[in-house]
Write a protein that binds this DNA or RNA. Structure first.
Lengths: 197, 197
DNA sequence: GTACGATGCGGACCGCCGGTCCGTTTCATG
DNA sequence: CATGAAACGGACCGGCGGTCCGCATCGTAC
């Protein structure tokens, strides 16, 4: 058995830390304004508990992001259409992108914290590789579309957290406007005429 | 006259700092590994000179980026086709994007330092607004293309520095491969059938 | 219930970095 | 050459990410 049963208080603290971090990132303007000490204080634990449980700051952010992303990820991996794998590509590609976009809209503060971690690029993170791979595979099945790898990168780039933040915060776009824009852009890339709506 | 003649040594130091910073960012793996003290030492000046001349770290990076970008910017603002304003849109849009991409390929270290500055989003920077505005205006003149604002954002997002870095560093793509991929993607968005090559 | 080893805890502590301060040096001008 | 202004530089500061170690708590075996 490589599995070790974690102690009860450790699990409880882990959840408290994730909840406190989520709340703090949501409340504060910039992710950089949230310090490890802040999170520890808000969770009612010592600083060392953070680092023991998550390694370092980026580890904590990754864990938090991953925890919130899990439902969407599962819906895309094994859920029903239009997100699940049984969906035809021309329908699944827009659905996947819309799901990513909605997640980033709902969790802008987390996405900003993750992508703005500085040192390590967001393209090294596991979840990016997953989205990119899923999208690439779907694009491979779209007739007449070459270079699915770059296309997947480019489409995902249109959902970058700081771009979304800019659209919402500085250009004053609403959630539905942005979703419509991305859908139209995606349709254009897929060579499907946009629905008149 | 609002212009004040700067002292000779100040101008000299300014250039030395820019050159030293450029070299350091190019040499080091991560932009975060280059400290202000490093730059000051490499330029042979005191730390205070950096902050007096550029305000803070992001100011220095902005100034350096802007200095290196100036030629491309001028070519786009008042140069001859295919970059200049007299070019027809269907030709100018790919040319603008290719110019941005090439600049980021040539100055990856600077682009990474700029976009990875953390706190402030790259979308607030003046040069982004400029590229976006130019591209949007060109897209406005492409028949049948609505939502030029978002389209400009999305196309520019495909040239993000960390994406370029990922393609070159982790996927092993060559410069020409990436340029071809972006050109094909752009053509697809413009509904122009890609050239048979 | 109790004794005991292992696991986890917490906050004082460290090194480093961005940014500031102020006594000193260098430039420009008449 | 004298003098005021402008720029210099490195010691200094506050704060942050990350570590360390003595102490508390948990789970277990009897």
């Amino acid at each position: 058995m490589t599995e070790r049963k974690p102690r009860a208080d450790a699990a409880r603290n882990r959840e408290a830390v994730l909840a406190a971090a989520d709340a703090l990132f949501a409340r504060c303007e910039s992710p950089a304004a949230v310090t490890m000490a802040d999170i520890a204080a808000a969770a009612g634990v010592g600083k060392a508990t953070l680092f023991r449980g998550f390694g370092d700051r980026t580890g904590l952010i990754h864990a938090l992001y991953e925890a919130r992303l899990a439902p969407v990820r599962r819906a895309a991996e094994e859920g029903p259409p239009p997100l699940g794998p049984s969906t035809p590509p021309s329908e699944r590609v827009p659905a996947l992108l819309d799901a990513v976009l909605c997640f980033k809209l709902d969790h802008r503060h987390l996405a900003l914290a993750l992508e703005g971690t500085g040192g390590d690029s967001p393209y090294a993170a596991g979840h990016y590789t997953l989205w990119h791979g899923t999208l690439r595979d779907a694009l491979d099945r779209v007739p007449g579309l070459a270079d699915s790898d770059f296309t997947a990168h480019a489409l995902l780039a249109a959902t970058r957290a700081d771009l979304v933040e800019h659209l919402v915060g500085h250009e004053g776009r609403t959630r539905e406007e942005i979703r419509a824009s991305l859908a139209a852009f995606t349709a254009r890339v897929l060579h499907v005429p946009a629905p008149p709506h």
